[in-house]
Design a protein around this nucleic acid. Structure first.
Lengths: 205, 205
DNA sequence: GTCTATAAGAAGATAGAC
DNA sequence: GTCTATCTTCTTATAGAC
């Protein structure tokens, strides 16, 4: 990895653990393996490093959103995937989603950084809500909506059903972000949550 | 309010908006109406102000927990309250709970401060989880458990039912903390959430 | 308990050699 | 692009008068 990008990577790690204000350019440089003044050949200020992280992530989010939309506009293909969906498959889907969000290094660090910085300005607040509230509800609502069209789930209110599916996942994720040692407990609750979700919304017969 | 306590109050406001590291003793003093050096007659350091806030809150939490436990150990009295519980009452209960947590000044500022500082050390992480995960699930689990004994709700897994009740409330609360202008939207989702919750878990006949 | 003046140190950023 | 040396500013905290 080139120095310019390694700076972003190490800065993201530090920002996600201590927050922007508690990280000194000194520490970032040390982790990169250079001296602090050398950082300024790559970025004009500490704030510019933070901004570059946000930019990079906005870029990733756009790509991600595009990928999700493409899948979404081909319901026929998606429906095929969920044709044989049963409770165990739903548990695996939810658990995998949870584990991915929790363990993917970039995703986790960025989420924690945004958790710390979300109140600093309106832009960061919007990014957080977009990424961890609006987008997941929208995307998962689409997927669960497919299961409803398949007749595998039953509801008159897909958005609220989606809230019921996602909110517990989100809350357990925040628990594990701050107390990683509670992951097993969280995974157990996750599984129980989804099985109960399936009983509540699944076809009853 | 005496100066010593006004310092805590103004510091809490600032810490909840910008985080500990981004608040200067200068600003705290200015809001209190004194000069920065005078702060040091009341608290020996900026960190001591933060610690005093945490201490004060731990004290409030203990009282609160005690009050809740006392209610909880008298199920007969509580059961009486929920005897005539119906969907509209449940909506009001949830909405009131939500509005209280969202608008109570002290509660809101402390929650936001803890949101920012939760990753700084294990103690703060534990306080956050305790206050916004374990305690609400425990207390609401007890209340919903009463409704199950009353036969008003039906489930074989009260803890997961409680997760289904509380997680959406928690998530909507975090949305409003960072984007207060979304309160109306959140309240609408809250009501739909609880009505759907009641349909899912309520006696079906 | 509050003030003014100031010490002490930290942290971001720049200059200029290599 | 990286370094050493240094500047500048900001911030916490103390000293000592009132």
């Amino acid at each position: 990895m080139d120095t310019k990008h390694k700076i972003l990577d190490e800065a993201l790690t530090l920002f996600s653990e201590k927050g922007f204000a508690n990280v000194f350019v000194n520490e970032i440089a040390e982790r990169v393996g250079i001296k602090a003044p050398s950082l300024y050949k790559h970025y004009k200020s500490k704030q510019a490093i933070f901004d570059a992280i946000i930019d990079e992530m906005n870029h990733r989010f756009e790509q991600q959103a595009q990928a999700l939309t493409i899948d979404g506009t081909d319901p026929a293909a998606d429906a095929e995937v969920y044709k044989n969906m049963d409770e165990d498959h739903l548990v695996k889907l939810g658990t995998d989603l949870f584990k991915y969000y929790l363990h993917d290094s970039y995703t986790r660090r960025f989420r924690k950084m945004l958790t710390i910085e979300q109140f600093q300005d309106k832009d960061l607040a919007r990014v957080y809500s977009q990424q961890y509230f609006d987008m997941p509800l929208s995307y998962q609502g689409m997927l669960l909506g497919l299961l409803v069209s398949q007749g595998l789930l039953v509801t008159e209110n897909v958005p609220i059903m989606t809230l019921h599916f996602y909110a517990p996942i989100y809350m357990l994720l925040t628990v594990c972000d701050r107390e990683p040692e509670r992951e097993q407990e969280a995974l157990k609750l996750m599984e129980e949550h989804i099985r109960q979700f399936d009983k509540l919304y699944g076809r009853n017969f």
